[in-house]
Amino acid sequence: MNLKAETGRDIRRKIYNKLALGMISVLGALAIMPMILIFVYILIEGIPALSLDFFLENPKPLGESGGGMANAIVGTVILVALSCLIGLPVGLGAGIFMAEYSYTKTSKLLRFTSDILTSVPSIIVGLFAYAVVVKPLKAYSAWAGGFALAVIMIPILARTTEEILKLIPHHIREAGLALGIPRWRVTMRIVFAGSFAGILTGIILSVARIAGETAPLLFTAFGNNFGFRGLGQPTASLPVQIYNYALSPYKEWHDQAWAASFILLVMVFIVNLLTRVVFKDQRGES
């Protein structure tokens, strides 16, 4: 009996194998395409549109050429700062709670709620901020935008903070407690301070995320064309301005939208690369 004889079935199996593996490899190779396609176009269209005016000038009235997005850049910085003011204490606090009191029922519930809250569509967060801030104050304002962004930031920050604090080995906490240090000091001075680089990265990551949000700002911070006028006033932001300019019929505004997108994209890229490096260090140490 010849054991090596290949039946038709074997040949079919081999062909299927080749086909399937080939297909998977092709898909794997194609996987880098969307990123490249988007990135290349943003580079091609965005870089030529950049100029000093883009950073320093407010938008010019219709019909006049020139102008920039200084108002939107300043606005985005203000909105992000506001949301950090509201969101950092809550997000970090909740994150520390989840990591250090992870055995409590509240922690488990909180972990689930944070995940759910992270996946709530951002336009819904906009509606929420509208109901909470815009409606009672009867005005679009930086406060409303900052509040909306904070709502998005908090669950993300809480979860990353938790993940980072959990990288600190348990025996370090025990060592602190054994020295008779109160638990809150162990948490703040040893655990929290010890993973500060990671925490900072988490904060930067969540800032990068909210800086690109558009939907929650459309009817909270709204926008303006004349620069910052106070926290109770409508405030411009880069993403909203990209949206408005992209839908406008003017070529010059389209160019500026590309330039603004380029800046956003570069920021997001740098932050993400940075995060990777820092996280690798953290994991390597422990």
Binding site: A208, T214, I242, W258
Partner: peptide
């Protein structure tokens, strides 16, 4: 990285 791109940039593209 596709997940990190702001959605308004997808829209523009």
């Amino acid at each position: 990285m596709l997940a990190a791109i702001p959605s308004v940039i997808y829209g523009l593209w």
